[in-house]
């Protein structure tokens, strides 16, 4: 399968750039250390009387942030560079199909996300006493992978409309950071005006964060699958792919 082959080479190239790989995985761990240090971390009693460390509640937020960075931001930026360097134009001259190239990237994003979350949760458990849910674990994994798919697709989509590499960081940040702030990821938005939350609910970050939070919370009853939230995230992902096909640029845009 062509996409699988693309994924394999993408993956090989990824690990050959140790600085990029190392900080992709270090990023959430830094926050795992920073957040409790800044905001404090009180232990609270769990649903069956056990002690749950405050770090447990930081993990989903940090996970959401790290996943979006590793998929949305990262794909938008690396595609811009690949376009500017002519790697994409070279690919365009081969029989490789657009869909196989995109699918390979999405598979790579989902794989990296899986590792990223596994490492964060494991380090969290070993060093910060983070409680890993057992009953809702499948829901947590499905949620994380759905988010990886959707934000990777959206990253590919936005790269196609960006005019050049220099425009990459400001536009990508401007498109994602405000959403992270209004979507109850780092800052509780309970006191925010209602219209702001209404706006946030249009976009996928809010729903991804909510589904992740619920599937990782020790207080969740049932299997933890947030089907409504997951569906909205997935629809954004599919829309991302459709837009990506429309806007994908294989050559640097010059005027």
């Amino acid at each position: 399968m062509k996409a699988l082959r693309e994924f394999r080479f993408e993956n090989r190239a990824f690990w050959r750039n140790p600085a990029a790989a190392f900080f992709t995985f270090m990023f959430p761990l830094m926050f795992l250390f920073l957040f409790p240090t800044i905001f404090g971390s009180g232990d609270i009693p769990g649903p069956s009387g056990e002690t749950i460390t405050g770090e447990t509640f930081y993990v989903p937020a940090i996970g959401v942030f790290a996943i979006i960075t590793a998929t949305y931001t990262n794909n938008a930026m690396t595609l811009l560079f690949a376009r500017e360097e002519g790697v994409l134009k070279r690919k365009r001259g081969t029989p490789l199909r657009t869909r196989d190239y995109m699918l390979g990237r999405i598979m790579h994003s989902m794989f990296i996300t899986f590792l990223l979350v596994a490492i964060t949760v494991t380090v969290g458990k070993l060093f910060f006493g983070v409680a890993i849910p057992s009953e809702t674990l499948p829901a947590f994994i499905v949620t994380v992978l759905t988010g990886a798919f959707a934000f990777c697709a959206l990253g590919i989509a936005i790269s196609g409309v960006l005019p050049n590499v220099e425009a990459g960081p400001p536009v990508v940040n401007a498109s994602i950071l405000p959403l992270l702030f209004i979507s109850n990821v780092f800052i509780p938005t309970a006191d925010a005006p209602e219209w702001l939350t209404t706006v946030a609910k249009v976009f996928p970050v809010y729903h991804f964060a909510e589904a992740t939070l619920i599937s990782f919370s020790p207080f969740t009853e049932g299997n933890g699958f947030e089907w409504n939230n997951l569906a909205i995230v997935a629809v954004w992902g599919v829309a991302g792919i459709l837009i990506a096909f429309k806007t994908f640029a294989w050559e640097p845009k010059r005027k």
């Binding site: 690949a82 002519g86 070279r90």
Partner: peptide, 10 residues
Amino acid sequence: LQETGVERYL
């Protein structure tokens, strides 16, 4: 072509 890159880390 000129100025077409290739995956640099391979």
